[in-house]
């Protein structure tokens, strides 16, 4: 150990120190290097023919490592105008993994939180002979509009007033309606979405009596694919 503290060997000490540092960096980087779940699981157990040609799975597909008896849910949004394909790919060692697709029907209730009194400035507009506000014109004589396309009017002055600002809390209740259940035979859910919908996908991994498999988690991929086809927008209905 003497070489460590001997000032004559200072250079040797520095060289050794950096060697050790380098070895440590290599070891640490090797130990901490790991692939993400998505990298490990993406597409791993999906059959190419099931994925279907032209479907884009980037966006809301997700991956997890699940144990036997686990249940997991995915909340997603399906935009109207898309043809969609939802499927689940899992490691065969997990057994017969099932999935269901639910349509989420959300109901909202506004609950009064508090009322705040705020000072506000109300504009008083210049009026024309008929008593209508005069539109504001830019240097080119064009009507000025605001950020959201509203016509702006010439302002004469402002009137101070107080407004009561009501602050609401939102309570959401979600009812579900089943759209698909893989226990009924099919393993792929396909649909053309005419109305934008929030959905929930539920994946259930079966139990196992095998003591080794019980402790093993493995990949489950929930694939949400779409083909954009919006040339005939059906519109929103409540």
């Amino acid at each position: 150990m003497r070489w460590l503290y001997n000032p004559k060997n200072k250079r040797k000490y520095i060289v050794h120190f950096f060697r050790i540092l380098l070895i440590l960096i290599v070891i640490i980087s090797l130990l901490t290097k790991k692939n993400s779940y998505a990298q490990q699981c993406f597409n791993q157990f999906c059959k190419t023919e099931d994925l279907g040609k032209d479907f884009d799975y980037r966006g809301q597909s997700t991956f997890a490592k699940l144990f036997p008896k686990d249940t997991c849910r995915v909340q997603a949004i399906l935009y109207s105008g898309n043809e969609i394909r939802i499927m689940m790919c899992s490691d065969p060692t997990l057994g017969n993994v099932q999935f269901k697709v639910y349509k989420s029907i959300r109901e909202y209730k506004r609950i009064l939180d508090r009322i705040e009194k705020k000072e506000s400035q109300e504009p008083i507009y210049n009026l024309d002979k008929k008593g209508n506000p005069i539109p504001k014109l830019d240097d080119w004589g064009k009507t000025v509009r605001d950020n959201i396309g509203e016509i702006q009017f010439e302002i004469k002055s402002y009137k101070k007033s107080f407004i009561l600002d009501t602050i609401w809390k939102i309570e959401r209740n979600t009812k579900v309606e089943i759209l698909f259940d893989s226990r009924k035979g099919s393993k792929i859910f396909t649909s053309t979405i005419s109305k934008t919908e929030p959905i929930t996908i539920e994946v259930v991994v079966p139990q196992t009596s095998d003591l080794i498999l019980k402790k093993n988690n493995s990949c489950v991929g929930i694939m949400i694919g779409r083909i954009f086809k919006s040339t005939n927008y059906k519109g929103f209905s409540k």
Partner: peptide, 19 residues
């Protein structure tokens, strides 16, 4: 039951507005 929450990517929205 654990839940994951996903959002469509902005690309889907822009494809629609271009359309």
């Amino acid at each position: 039951v654990k839940t994951r929450v996903k959002l469509p990517s902005p690309v889907e929205f822009y494809l629609f507005i271009r359309e």
